[in-house]
Design a protein around this nucleic acid. Structure first.
Length: 492
DNA sequence: AGCACA
């Protein structure tokens, strides 16, 4: 019996399936492009590209049949055809019920993540920002960025698949907080899957690749002159000599910016040794001293032109200072020497260590440890309450030694597993003592990004970093926002 | 432009 029914030739030849067959695809169409097209209708759990003799067909599998139906129905009645790269794509239900084979959209756990950035150009997300974001979940070994047809992508290598999985779970679909992005970028959603790689080969430290396990790796010449990845702001000039001390000017200061806020922000990029704040030209300025020039460079690149608070408030402008070592005579709310906490109002405390034991000699090998990120990562979206409201208590014996010795990265599993918020105590025992512990650096009423500090990355759709509605200013905006007891700057 | 060789 030949084609009396004659159906299989036509458009809706097959009954609905959560697998769609797509054809007339552009050359070397990627999984990411397919997902981009299908995403409005549901979640693509698997795909296979480059199918057929012309390699221009593909299969996508939705997690749910209704999602596939909605996509087919939509394009059946749409005046605009489905398109990829401007090319019309024809789609129909597949005669299969699941996509076989292929890189299962990266569901095989790996210690390396493939990150696709949505809505940004290659230069918009610096490798330092990536490092910052992913370090919230564990020690990042290597990062490599590249551009393909799917857009700007990165491979981020962790030590083990579990750590990578926690980062993926937490960040997939989230957006990088705007204060880490150039102003023209509205949002930068992340799509994360597991890579097939296990160990990236990074030959140079450059603007597109880093190996954080090997600080002695040569720096690529190409990275030297292309300072563009750091210059997120409009200033393309790199005339001023680099320094370990940054001069920060704060523009549009509607909210209080305390020394603790600055410490929290800048500590994400390395060890902050000293901070001094002062008034200049009716504005607030601060000198932030890092232990290392490279930390200052990274911080400058990542933060220049960004606002501390949502809404364009407290915009940072950073320049290299000519200072290399600030002289802080007292620890107060305008100046702080984090390498010598026995100054100023800490002086009443008995000094537990002799001067020889103070930092410097004992500072372990300078490695890119973000003290703010060495903290345990717990579940995303936990209330940001644990401990930060605690007023900075006077230091107790032993805290100085914690400052002097900063342990290498400790895996988050050691503290926070099973999604329970680490208690303040547990954190304290892990990394005790102010002000090494960033939780102690916040004043009451001074909302600091603790969730970020604790490895609860802010990349949460509902997370508003330093947003106005979360922020409870201690003082009304206006000229009187600074604490009344802000004495004269004690640095020189 | 019409259904996949790990």
């Amino acid at each position: 019996m030949s084609s009396s029914a004659g159906q299989p030739q036509f458009r809706y030849a097959y009954p609905p399936s959560k697998v769609l067959h797509l054809r007339n695809l552009p050359w070397e169409c990627t999984h990411e492009e397919l997902v981009e097209l299908c995403k409005p209708f549901g979640r693509v759990v698997n795909s296979k590209c480059n199918v057929g003799s012309n390699r221009n067909q593909a299969f996508v599998e939705f997690e749910d049949l209704n999602q596939a139906i909605s996509m087919v129905s939509y394009y059946a009645s749409s005046s605009e055809p489905a398109q990829i790269r401007g090319k019309t794509v024809y789609l129909q239900y597949s005669n299969r019920q699941e996509v076989v084979n292929n890189k299962s959209s990266g569901d095989v756990a790996s210690n390396v993540l493939l990150v696709t950035f949505e809505g940004v150009e290659a230069g918009d997300v610096s490798i330092d920002v990536l490092h910052l974001v992913f370090s919230a979940f564990g020690f990042v070994h290597k990062i490599a960025t590249f551009e393909k047809t799917a857009g700007f992508q990165a491979l981020v290598q962790f030590s083990d698949p579990d750590t990578a999985a926690s980062a993926r779970t937490a960040l997939d679909g989230r957006s990088i907080p705007s204060y880490l992005l150039p102003e023209h970028v509205k949002s930068c959603h992340l799509h994360i899957s597991f890579s097939a790689h296990v160990d990236l080969t990074v030959k140079f430290q450059s603007h597109r690749s880093r190996d954080y396990t090997n600080p002695h790796l040569p720096v690529a010449a190409s990275a030297m002159d292309s300072s563009s990845q750091f210059a997120l702001g409009p200033d393309g000039k790199k005339k001023e000599p680099e320094s370990n001390v940054l001069l920060a000017s704060i523009e549009n200061m509607q909210y209080e910016v305390t020394i603790d806020v600055l410490h929290t922000i800048f500590s994400a990029f390395g060890t902050v040794e000293k901070i001094a704040m002062f008034e200049k030209n009716a504005g607030l300025q601060a000198l932030i001293q890092f232990s290392d020039v490279s930390n200052a460079v990274t911080a400058k690149g990542a933060l220049e032109g960004h606002c501390i608070y949502e809404g364009g408030f407290c915009k940072l402008h950073l320049a290299y200072s000519r200072h290399t070592d600030l002289i802080v005579k007292a620890n107060n709310d305008r100046s702080r020497d984090y390498t010598n906490l026995n100054l100023g109002f800490y002086q009443s405390q008995p000094s537990v260590l002799s001067p020889q034991q103070l930092p410097g000699a004992q500072m372990g090998p300078t490695q890119p440890v973000d003290n703010s990120f060495s903290a345990p990562a717990s579940g995303i979206g936990l209330p940001q309450q644990q401990g930060w409201e605690t007023p900075s208590p006077p230091p107790v014996g032993g805290h100085v030694s914690n400052l002097a010795y900063r342990p290498p990265y400790t895996h988050p599993e050691t503290l926070a597993s099973s999604g329970t918020a680490p208690s303040y105590q547990s954190f304290t025992s892990y990394n005790p003592g102010p002000p090494v512990d960033p939780s102690r650096t916040a004043f009451p009423g001074q909302r600091v990004d603790t969730s970020y500090q604790y490895g609860q990355s802010p990349l949460n759709p509902n997370f508003q970093l330093y947003s106005g509605h979360q922020y409870q200013p201690s003082y009304p905006s206006g000229p009187g926002i600074l604490p009344p007891n802000s004495g004269p700057a004690a640095y020189m």
